[in-house]
Write a protein that binds this DNA or RNA. Structure first.
Lengths: 251, 251
DNA sequence: CAGGGTCCTCAGAGCCGTCTCAGAAGTTCC
DNA sequence: GGAACTTCTGAGACGGCTCTGAGGACCCTG
């Protein structure tokens, strides 16, 4: 397999790779096997090499073997608490990035100090886009992946998104977006020229426990159009019966 | 790796480096492994090369091996007291900078005697921002890191902070801040144009044992706005659902 | 041209995040 | 020992955000 030719299944973007050309490795640790499966599927799809573990002990064992670049770690594990695992992981691999998963209502188990290092966290229920984005952010800041080093800017035509500053501009004009609008646009911008079905969008942008209708996607596309395309040449297109595409104006 | 291209993971600022280009080295000595973990995570994030030790004997051994530029040293250790360790450290490396960690009720004059030599101290419980800032101050005064020699001024737009003098001005006008307000503003100013979540702010600006709600962050942002933005063009912005950003007025 | 399906948009209800005030408790400094 | 300051909690107000429901436009097909 040619190193330079490796691409992710979905996007055709170059696979995430470390400076030596091997794919980025991530360890997913969650005691809910369904959730672990969804997560690892999504990450594999993004070009990661994924392994999973169901508890803290297994996590450390797997980590020793895999030497992952990043770990997605549920704070509530059957055997150990997140902090202990974090310490063990740093012993195994001092420069590992950790993304914590934590329940929203678990205000008590403070995650004090966790974001103090480069690490980050996401509250359950989360959207896959959010997890993927945060993981990319971690890796970028750690300077780990070649492709991510360009910076946190996402560009499609004259539409520019700065993920760190959460700022979106079109031909220089600032566009204000709500959290959901922002996440939806990010998903579109990470998949330009690609038709995305409403189901796909729902799976990636909305949290996994969302019980609502696909109708919300139409609604939010409508919101986005008003803000992104307003008065300008349209970039968001409907493909009837299939979904939506984001395309730069000029080809 | 190109020497001039090295940057810290988080900020993109130049990595802390000694005159010969190698990263600055620090030894963290504390018998509480959680605290040592948090501290070393934060310092690694700032670009330091970090090692840890759990007691005085290990500290001296590690120091002999690492030859650190600075040591963060808990005064209360299981085997020796901090002062004995200090003597040993100075035998190993006479020009080492030491930042003491001490309980609030510790005897003041003994600390005063210690810090006479140019070293500094921080009382527990401390905030990570404070430790990092003090360590930077020590190194700067010792003339150890090239990048830090420019001086202790932090500028974002017309907002200027003199860390040493603890003085803040906006377009020349002096702004009086309480200790917490000052530290919060420093954190914002050290991360301009970057959205910082309330959890992130809490982890860095408040002490590690703070048990309260993220609500305090909102409160202090509100205080800061009244003093920093009052009547002027706002620099502190809320990003709903994400956190806060400090941005210079002009883009 | 009628009919069914798909999609768009508006209006509104409920919820959630944020801001601000007021006051209690703790601290520092004279 | 008192005054000023600082820090944090709680409560209420406000506004924005998210989603539901409904009406209507558009498109394709029979």
């Amino acid at each position: 397999m040619l190193e330079g030719a490796m691409t992710t299944p979905r996007t055709g973007r170059p696979a995430l790779a470390r400076p030596d050309g091997t794919p980025l490795r991530v360890l997913v640790v969650d005691d809910d096997p369904d959730l672990a499966e969804v997560l690892s599927g999504a990450l594999r799809y993004e070009g990661w090499q994924v392994r999973t573990a169901g508890d803290g002990a297994a996590a450390v064992t797997e980590a020793r073997d895999l030497m992952p670049d990043a770990v997605v770690l549920d704070v509530m594990l059957p055997d150990t608490d997140g902090f202990g695992v974090l310490r063990s992981l740093h012993t195994v691999k001092p420069d590992v990035c950790v993304l914590f998963l934590t329940a929203r209502d678990a205000v008590e188990d403070r995650i004090a100090g966790i974001t103090a290092g480069g690490d980050d966290y996401v509250t359950k229920p989360f959207s896959l886009e959010e997890v993927v984005a945060r993981l990319r952010g971690l890796l970028r800041r750690a300077g780990m992946a070649r492709q991510l080093e360009e910076g946190p800017r996402l560009c499609v035509g004259d539409l520019v998104m700065d993920e760190e500053a959460r700022e979106v501009t079109r031909s220089g004009e600032l566009i204000e977006l709500s959290p959901t609008e922002f996440e939806l646009l990010r998903f579109l911008m990470r998949n330009p020229r690609r038709v995305l079905s409403k189901a796909q969008i729902l799976d990636r942008v909305w949290s996994y426990d969302f019980g609502g209708q696909a109708h919300v996607v139409e609604l939010y596309i409508s919101y986005l159009r008003k803000k992104v395309d307003a008065g300008r040449y349209p970039m968001i297109h409907t493909v009837r019966g299939a979904g939506y595409v984001l395309k730069p104006v000029a080809r």
